[in-house]
Every structure is written in structure tokens, then in C-alpha cells.
Write a protein that binds this DNA or RNA. Structure first.
Lengths: 299, 299
DNA sequence: GGCTATATTAAGTTCAGACTTAATGATTGA
DNA sequence: TCAATCATTAAGTCTGAACTTAATATAGCC
């Protein structure tokens, strides 16, 4: 009978550009992969992988095996999860995808604690500039997103509200003055997060029923929000940041809000739950935990 | 991740009356079973088997695991079979159920040869007085049946025609005379196969359009047809036997037909194919082979 | 009470699979 | 042509899972 380990092995091969790459992925030496594949092929009396001519490719039989493997490995994982749930245990792999800033500063510490409390858990955190893009790459259980979402057909759960502010250091405003109206912002030095996916130089400001789009000409930009926050703290100008990022600074007076009457659209923090993955106990438990700690402002 | 070997192990336990019995079934010592079970339970942090109070029973978790195991192990076996079929190989387990007489004399030799020609085949022949009853017991691929069948929803394939005769040794008929009409049979010493399931003392004889049911009062009876044939050969009387059993004796003149104008209902030899089992190459190949050899009269 | 079968613990043995290193050959691209 | 990457073969190592034997505890049965 075919061994699921073989199926996992072949599945790993299928998504690697070469045997050597697969070996690196699996943390073994190339001969190990070569041998194991040869052994499997010999056992089945079938060729599974097309050697030569450039990149690694599966034969029809190999592809079929990988295709069928998915369901079987899935069923096995599901069963394992169910039994763990029945035992009331938090264990197994937990794959989280999160954006760089929020992930590193807020998710990582919670995940570390959660992992320490549940020794049989194998947490894996993948930070990305573009979580929604990574989503289709590998396996994942929970994806953390900050901001508006296209209407995906995926279970989502709001972890916390998150407003967006214009902020600056008191030192800067003391020197350069505090803008009273949006129009005055144009006279200031402004920093923005520069992303590929969104236009971050157009700020849709609202005050009661008033709406206006403010086009800013940023002096500073960076694709890492924390760097931008650092610049603001250093008094280099006015930046737009999420509440989660600067709440502590505001409380401590290291930063102050600019145009406090005006608000930017909310960018709530939500967790997407992979519909493909079973709702294992570890997933629900982690999301609960994350929601609790994020709302409480812990990090 | 739960290992299919664990699932097989637990499935074996589920159908055993005690751990010791399971150990015998698995060809290991009782401690091996005890340890392995303890290890599995520890790994899952769940109790799977109810110890004590007499016969072994599964807990709710154990039963659920066994239930789910079926589908997964089935899918794995199916995949294995499919890959073997793609490789054009005859291999794997082949479980045949057959009635005692026909199975021992006709099926066993063919299966032995077929197994020898395909070294990776693991043939297993289960002889039974009541194959259709055994059918629901364990796993099986092919069931050989001689005679009429209730209308089962199972693929069946006729392997050979098989008439039934009344026969006696020439020595006997020389001594006691040859009955000319069915009624005269009553004056003879008669032997029948005694079975629980069928009334074998009522012979539905037909000649052209004539039909009559002859009730016989058997002198000899045995539940093994070959014993009966031996008695007939030894000149003890008239017996009813299948063509497959006595064809050679008739040809050699060791037996002769009694009332050759009258015929008993046919009892064709059919193979039933387990619908649950995949149509693996080995199954089709074996049935083909059996059909060929049975028709050719080889043994 | 003996007899038997079952279940479990403890400790030692065994073996196959999976890996490693080392060496060689093939392919590709600068 | 050299350097680098990849693939494979050969040979040796290692480990842990699975099993064994031995000993002990327990329960049912005549």
C-alpha cells in the first residue's frame, strides 16, 4: 500500500523547480531526494518525474498521484485535527500569514506566547507585503489583514477596530505650526507608506458630512510603516498611520494628532480563516486569543 | 499526523474479541498490541479501547476513528491499485471465497499457478460451506458460487456451464440394475449432499416438457460432495453430482449417468465481484484466467 | 484452591528505512 | 573553457519504531 509519506514527498517535489531545490525545502541532501524518488518509482514500477530538459516536471502518473494525494492527505489531516479537538488539545501546525508591520509588532508576540503555552503547537508566521497575494501560494490557516477587503468568499472575523490618523511629533508642530484645515497640509512635509497596490497619496478625509480628497505630495515615503512612524517621531513631518501603530505614542505625547476633526476611512483588523482548512481547535483558539490581546492593546 | 498503520491496527482491534485475540490475528505477541495501543492512545491523548468488563470494546472516540479509517484506507488502497493498473502489473492482495469442493479442486490449483506467475500477488483463498454467508464477514474480492443465485446487486460473471447428473458406478448398476424411470430410483440406494441451506432430497427432474419432483430417501449423506463422489465410485449407490466434479469419471467410465434422458436444473459456476473493491487489474486478470481454465476443464 | 487466559510493565534486541558523505557525470551559462 | 548547479550512484551510519522475552497482576471458571 502506498504510504502517505510518499504522497507528501511527491507533493513537495511537485512544487519545486528541481530535485535540489526540493532537497533544500525538505532540509535534506540532494541524494536523499534522488534515492527516495528512485525507490518510490521502483516500487510502483512507474516513472513519476520527468528528468532532464530543464525544470523538473511530473509525468502523467506523477501528476495524477499528486492530485489524488491531496484528498487523502487532507482527510488524514482533518481526522487528526478532529481527534485533537476531541481531546481538547491545541496542537499541530498553525500557519499564519500577516502583513509586515502589524505581523511583526502585534501578531508575532501573541503567537510566540500562544506557542509557548501549547508546546505541541507548531506555529509558523509568514510576513508579507502582500498577504492576499501570498494566500494562493502555500498552505495557510489564518490570514491577518488590515484595511478594506474585496468581497472574498472567506470567513472573516474582525479582531479590532482600527482608525487611521494624521500624526506628527510635537517638536515638529511647534516648529512648523499645526495645520487648521486640510488645505494647509500642502505646506507641510508629509510622509506616506508607498505601496504597489494602493494610492496612498490621496487621503479621503471626512468631517461630519463634509468629504474631500486631499492629494498630498509626499516628501518621505517607505513601504514599511514603522520606518515612517520613526520619521514622524524624529520630527520630520506629518504622516498617516494606523491607530494600532501610534496609539501608544499618542498616549505618551510623543506624537499628536493633526487635523483631529477629520477622519480617514477605518482600516479594521480582520482575520480570514482558510475555508479549505478544517476548523481545528488550534485555529479558533488562536484567533480568539489574538482578538483579545489586540483589543486590549497588548503586544 | 495520524499514520494509516495506526488506523489499520485499530481496525484490526475493533474486530477482535480481546487484545490477545488481536495479537494472534496480527501474528505478534500480546505485549506488542498492548504497547502499541497504549502509545497510540498517549499520542492522541484519548482513550480508544474500553478495557475490562469482559470483551474488548471501543470507546466513542475509538469507534469514530475506525469509522473514518475505512474511507481513508479504502482511498489509499484504491490509489495503490490504480497505480499498479497503470503500471500494468498484477500485484497486491487477492481474496477469493469459494465453496469447499469446487474451491479446493478447481480454484486452488489455478490460484496457485496464477500466484506463482505473479510473484507480487498475495493470494488468499477462503473455503467455506456457505460462501454467501462468509461474504459479509471479511474483505473479499471475488466469490465463486455454484448454482442458482438470489438476485444480488452484485456484478457477476459466468465462468462455466455446469449441469447436474445422477451417476453411479458401473459396478453398482451391474449389480443392482439401472433405473429406467424416475420412479424406479426409489428402489435404489441413494446418496445426497446434505446442506443446511437447501433441500437436496427433492430432485426437480425434467425431460423435454415433462417435469416432476422426485423425493428421494437418501441412504448416504455428507456435506462434502467429494466424499459422496467417492462413495459412488466405490459402488455404494446413485448420487447427484455436478458435471465439473464427475466429468472425468464419466469420460473414463468409472461412473455412468443414471436416467440420462432426465436433467436436473443447471448449477452454473459464477464469479461475484465485490462492488466495494476497486476493479483492480489483478481481479479481472484472475477471473479471466479462472474462466479460461475452468472451461478448458483443467485443474 | 489451582487452572487458564488476559493485560500490562520493563528491559533488551533487531532491522529496515532514511539519511549522510564522497565521488562522478551531465548540463548550462558566463 | 571554466565554474556552478544539478542529478545520480555507491557505501557507510544511525536511529527509532516495532518487536521480543520475562515477569507480574488480575479475573473468570471448574
Amino acid at each position: 500500500m502506498i504510504d502517505p509519506a510518499d504522497l507528501r514527498f511527491l507533493t513537495a517535489l511537485a512544487s519545486a523547480p528541481s530535485l535540489a531545490a526540493a532537497a533544500r525545502e525538505l532540509n535534506v541532501t540532494p541524494p536523499a531526494v534522488s534515492q527516495r524518488l528512485a525507490l518510490l518509482e521502483e516500487r510502483l514500477h512507474l516513472r513519476l518525474v520527468d528528468r532532464g530538459r530543464g525544470s523538473l516536471g511530473l509525468t502523467a502518473e506523477g501528476a495524477y498521484l499528486v492530485e489524488r494525494a491531496g484528498a487523502i492527505l487532507g482527510a488524514l489531516a482533518e481526522l487528526t485535527d478532529e481527534m485533537a479537538a476531541r481531546a481538547g488539545r491545541i496542537e499541530g501546525p498553525l500557519q499564519i500569514i500577516a502583513p509586515f508591520g502589524f505581523g511583526r509588532l502585534r501578531v508575532a508576540p501573541v503567537l510566540a506566547r500562544f506557542g509557548a503555552e501549547n508546546p505541541d503547537l507548531r506555529p509558523r508566521l509568514m510576513l508579507s507585503e502582500d498577504p492576499l497575494g501570498v494566500m494562493h501560494g502555500g498552505p495557510w490557516d489564518v490570514l491577518i489583514h488590515v484595511g478594506r477587503l474585496p468581497d472574498l468568499r472567506i470567513t472573516q472575523r474582525k479582531l479590532a477596530s482600527n482608525r487611521r490618523f494624521l500624526v506628527a511629533a510635537p517638536e515638529y508642530t511647534a516648529r512648523q505650526g499645526l495645520p487648521i484645515s486640510p488645505a494647509e497640509v500642502a505646506k507641510h512635509r508629509v510622509g506616506v507608506v508607498r505601496e504597489d497596490r494602493a494610492d496612498t497619496t490621496l487621503w479621503p478625509l471626512t468631517r461630519q458630512d463634509e468629504e474631500l480628497s486631499l492629494r498630498v505630495a509626499p516628501v518621505f515615503s517607505c513601504n514599511d510603516g514603522e520606518v515612517l512612524r520613526g520619521w514622524a517621531l524624529a520630527g520630520h513631518g506629518i504622516v498617516e498611520r494606523s491607530e494600532w501603530s501610534v496609539a501608544e505614542d499618542l498616549r505618551a505625547g510623543r506624537l499628536i494628532r493633526v487635523l483631529p476633526g477629520w477622519v480617514l476611512p477605518d482600516a479594521d483588523i480582520v482575520a480570514l480563516l482558510n475555508p479549505r482548512a478544517v476548523r481545528a481547535a488550534r485555529i479558533d483558539a488562536f484567533v480568539d486569543r489574538l482578538a483579545a490581546e489586540v483589543s486590549a492593546g497588548r503586544s
